[in-house]
Amino acid sequence: MTTAQQQWWFCTRHNTVEGPDTDCPGKDLLGPYATREEAANALEKVKERNEEWDAQE
């Protein structure tokens, strides 16, 4: 698991990558991710997972 200093989130409200000091509420965040790049690709990862789950139905 990553430490708090290494955690990054993607804020769905602001469409921005947020660091460990974010003021955004948890309900708006995807993550945590280990790198800023992973957080930046959060929506693509969600899309891929949804498509995989839809294909299983």
Rank of each mutant, 00 (worst) to 15 (best):
56 Q>L: 14
16 T>D: 06
18 E>S: 04
1 M>P: 06
55 A>L: 08
36 R>N: 07
28 D>K: 03
28 D>F: 06
27 K>W: 12
20 P>H: 10
46 V>G: 06
48 E>G: 05
54 D>R: 15
37 E>Y: 09
11 C>L: 07
40 A>I: 04
48 E>M: 11
10 F>A: 02
32 P>M: 10
13 R>Y: 11
15 N>T: 11
11 C>V: 03
3 T>H: 14
16 T>G: 07
15 N>I: 08
5 Q>D: 13
25 P>T: 02
16 T>S: 14
16 T>K: 15
3 T>P: 10
42 A>K: 01
52 E>C: 09
18 E>Y: 01
55 A>Q: 09
18 E>G: 02
25 P>E: 03
40 A>G: 11
18 E>P: 05
24 C>P: 06
55 A>H: 14
44 E>D: 10
7 Q>A: 13
49 R>N: 13
30 L>W: 02
41 N>I: 05
36 R>I: 00
45 K>T: 14
26 G>Q: 12
27 K>F: 08
14 H>D: 09
37 E>S: 07
23 D>N: 09
18 E>I: 00
6 Q>I: 04
17 V>A: 00
57 E>I: 05
6 Q>R: 11
49 R>T: 15
4 A>V: 13
27 K>Q: 09
51 E>T: 06
35 T>P: 02
38 E>W: 02
2 T>H: 15
35 T>L: 08
41 N>E: 09
14 H>G: 05
25 P>Y: 02
1 M>C: 11
56 Q>N: 13
24 C>V: 03
24 C>T: 01
48 E>W: 13
52 E>P: 07
50 N>G: 10
9 W>C: 02
6 Q>S: 11
22 T>V: 07
54 D>M: 15
55 A>R: 14
44 E>L: 05
4 A>T: 11
43 L>Q: 13
13 R>K: 12
20 P>G: 05
19 G>H: 06
34 A>Y: 03
28 D>A: 04
14 H>W: 08
43 L>S: 06
3 T>A: 13
4 A>S: 15
35 T>Q: 09
35 T>N: 12
20 P>A: 09
21 D>S: 13
22 T>S: 05
18 E>L: 03
42 A>R: 00
46 V>A: 07
47 K>W: 10
16 T>F: 09
27 K>D: 15
54 D>Y: 12
30 L>S: 04
3 T>C: 14
19 G>Y: 02
3 T>Q: 15
57 E>H: 15
34 A>N: 07
12 T>R: 02
2 T>W: 11
37 E>F: 07
22 T>Y: 01
2 T>A: 12
46 V>C: 08
38 E>V: 08
52 E>Y: 13
7 Q>C: 12
5 Q>T: 15
43 L>R: 14
38 E>D: 06
34 A>H: 08
47 K>I: 04
39 A>M: 04
10 F>C: 02
56 Q>E: 15
